[in-house]
């Protein structure tokens, strides 16, 4: 019985392309979706603002 289930699962996986299996992983997508704006928008922006010289009094 267990073997039959495993076979079904394997067949099902074979029907789905590796690319599709990758984007079916919501946690991988979550990582990409958080990392991209964090690096390109937030961190890059924070570095630029933090590097503005302070005006002399």
């Amino acid at each position: 019985m267990a073997d039959e289930n495993n076979t079904d699962e394997r067949e099902e996986d074979e029907n789905i392309s590796p690319w599709q299996q990758m984007i079916d992983n919501p946690f991988l997508l979550l990582f990409i979706g958080v990392a991209m704006p964090t690096v390109f928008y937030t961190l890059w922006g924070v570095m630029e603002i933090a590097s503005i010289p302070v005006a002399p009094y």
Partner: peptide, 10 residues
Amino acid sequence: YIFFLQLASA
């Protein structure tokens, strides 16, 4: 969208 949409905040 997941890759780029949030960058539009800029």
